[in-house]
């Protein structure tokens, strides 16, 4: 990430680089299914959306698949059919999800079957946040340090996102972290995104506990699509079968902070 930041900085600063929109004749590939399934701990309604890929030069209209047979099950023997509710989205109801349980989602589309299994990590309680005032490139702003105690006995994967309440523009975007260097530590790290909150902002702060296969997908999505990647490739999906997208079962916590 630093690499990209530094390189783009260098190029834009010293060397007077320039960009131009060009016409390229791109190859097209066969249409693939794109599945995004989500099970949230504590919820009893869960979703899967199924769409397909489209050629690069077409407008961004992604057709939904409505004739799939979808089931959701857990490792306690519970199972439910997920029904199509429009635009390629399938829904399971009355299926309460818990931390530590393992969920399997299966979709049959024509003669193809896609399946994925994920265990919801145990929640790491988000206790609050501390604010650090900082300046970047002449801009003063505030960094948010979420307060939590990383458990030493597990490898944890986190996702964070914070945004200004009722604002569409001020959004950090998705921030990934694991505890590779901070296992068992009380968090001190500000996770910095594309939004530097100002004094007086009301900020919604979200923290997800995600599974390793989900982290791998999101991480590879970031790495492989970066302009600096030597060999761009599709993110590492946790679906069996040749599908794009991912299935996540996770816990989610959310707090609201007013920046002093």
């Amino acid at each position: 990430m630093y690499k990209i930041l530094i390189i783009s900085f260098l190029f834009s600063f010293a060397l007077g680089s320039c960009t131009k929109v060009i016409d390229l004749d791109l190859n097209s590939s066969e249409t693939k299914y794109v599945l995004k399934g989500e099970v949230i701990s504590g919820d009893s309604t869960h979703h899967l959306s199924i769409t397909t890929t489209i050629p690069f030069d077409e407008p961004n209209v992604f057709p939904g698949i409505s004739d799939a047979v979808v089931t959701l099950s857990d490792d306690f023997g519970n199972s439910a059919a997920m029904l199509h509710i429009g635009n390629g989205v399938y829904e399971a109801q009355n299926f309460l999800a818990f931390d530590g349980r393992t969920y399997t989602m299966t979709a049959e589309i024509g003669d193809k079957t896609f399946s994925s299994t994920v265990t919801i990590p145990y929640v790491v309680p988000l206790l609050g946040a501390t604010i650090i005032e900082s300046s970047f490139f002449g801009q003063t702003g505030n960094l948010i340090v979420p307060t939590f105690q990383d458990p030493a006995q597990y490898t944890n994967y986190y996702k964070f996102r914070y945004y200004e309440k009722d604002s569409l523009d001020n959004d950090s975007g998705e921030i990934l972290s694991d505890d590779e260097f901070s296992n068992g530590q009380f968090n001190q790290q500000p996770f910095i995104g594309n939004y530097l909150p100002a004094s007086g902002d009301t900020v919604v702060y979200k923290m997800w506990g995600i599974a390793q296969s989900v982290y791998k997908f999101l991480y590879s999505k970031d790495v492989n699509t970066s302009p600096n990647s030597g060999a761009p490739a599709n993110p590492v999906s946790n679906w069996s079968g040749d599908a794009l997208g991912y299935f996540t079962a996770h816990n989610l916590q959310q707090i609201q902070i007013v920046i002093p």
């Binding site: 097209s28 769409t51 998705e174 490739a233 794009l244």
Partner: peptide
């Protein structure tokens, strides 16, 4: 190099 051969939507 590797250029895209299509696109999809996610999140």
């Amino acid at each position: 190099v590797t250029f895209p051969t299509g696109k999809y939507t996610l999140d």
